[in-house]
């Protein structure tokens, strides 16, 4: 290959520099808003609210974060979200992986039928009201199951995993194992799954991001405040401006009140950081699996 690229032509340089410039611009457009949020969360509230903060903290302070750590609702939400995410993702994987493996087997009778039956759900659904009525009828309203079971499986992810099983695990492995009298269950658990680690990681990430960010299901299915996930509390704080107990309205001095209002405004940035950073870190750590997992899904949609 190098033979062809060793002498860069003028036309090559043009394409290179255009690509680099566009990439730098996009990079800035995505990164700057994120940097702005982080630097605001570390700045003095007055500086934030008078519009003096740009892309580095001004009058550096950790006050906002200190307040956030003392603000209980966030941590109730955090705890619930972690429970829903761990339990939900476990259920997701237990349902998705065996199903995907079964559908990847060409010798499964009725494979086409099941694939069609499941795929149809990607393109057509009963809609919000019938789903809500069903959950209600099943007695799952205001229980953890309403957060875990309705999104228990997504055919999109089944397809990604199925394609992975089909394309990256040689059929000879199965034949050899069957020859040695290995049952399908053992084959799946001790041969296939260890080889499918990248796709298991990708699915685990996809599903857990979904659970972590779930907002609407909690809004319609849950009613107890102490069962609410993080996103509901975030909405109350960030969008509905409910931080009453934090503000301590009994304070007399209006200057102090103004200070609290400013603090609350700037706490929003810290709350964004605290609630989002874990996922962003996770997604960077897992990034080497994405291309692999998604590529195989992409080859045959």
């Amino acid at each position: 290959m190098n033979r062809f690229f060793s002498r860069k032509s003028k036309d090559d340089l043009v394409v290179d520099s255009v690509a680099v410039c566009v990439t730098l611009i996009i990079f800035a457009l995505v990164a700057l808003p994120l940097i702005y949020v982080i630097s605001s969360s570390l700045s003095d509230p007055t500086e934030v609210l008078t519009g003096r903060v740009t892309f580095y903290p001004r009058n550096f302070t950790l006050d906002g974060y200190k307040r956030i750590f003392e603000y209980d609702p966030i941590w109730i939400g955090y705890r619930n979200t972690i429970i829903y995410t761990v339990l939900g993702t476990t259920v997701n994987l237990l349902v998705t992986l065996p199903c995907a493996y079964a559908l990847s087997r060409r010798d499964l009778l009725g494979r086409g039928f099941f694939t069609f039956l499941f795929t149809f759900t990607m393109f057509f659904n009963g809609g919000l009201i019938p789903t809500y009525l069903l959950i209600k009828q099943l007695g799952m309203l205001n229980t953890i199951w309403a957060m875990v079971l309705p999104p228990a499986c997504s055919m999109w992810n089944v397809i990604i995993a199925r394609t992975y099983f089909q394309t990256s695990i040689p059929d000879e492995l199965r034949e050899a194992a069957v020859m040695d009298g290995c049952s399908n269950t053992r084959l799946f658990l001790s041969i296939i799954l260890p080889l499918a680690k990248p796709i298991v990681m990708v699915l685990a990430l996809f599903y857990s991001v979904g659970h972590w960010n779930t907002f609407f299901n909690a809004l319609i299915y849950l009613s107890d405040t102490n069962k609410m996930p993080l996103q509901i509390f975030l909405r109350n704080i960030l969008l509905l401006d409910q931080m009453v107990d934090l503000l301590g309205m009994d304070s007399e001095s209006s200057a102090y009140l103004m200070f609290l209002i400013r603090l609350k405004e700037s706490m929003k940035y810290g709350i964004i950081v605290v609630s989002t950073l874990p996922l962003l870190i996770l997604s960077v750590v897992m990034q080497k699996f994405f291309v692999k997992g998604l590529m195989i899904g992409a080859v045959k949609g």
Binding site: I26, V209, L238, I272, S275, T276, L280
Partner: peptide
């Protein structure tokens, strides 16, 4: 460039 995908809708809206 794909990081924002992981930001939840609630945070995105705010």
């Amino acid at each position: 460039s794909y990081l924002p995908h992981f930001i939840s809708t609630v945070v995105m809206a705010s």
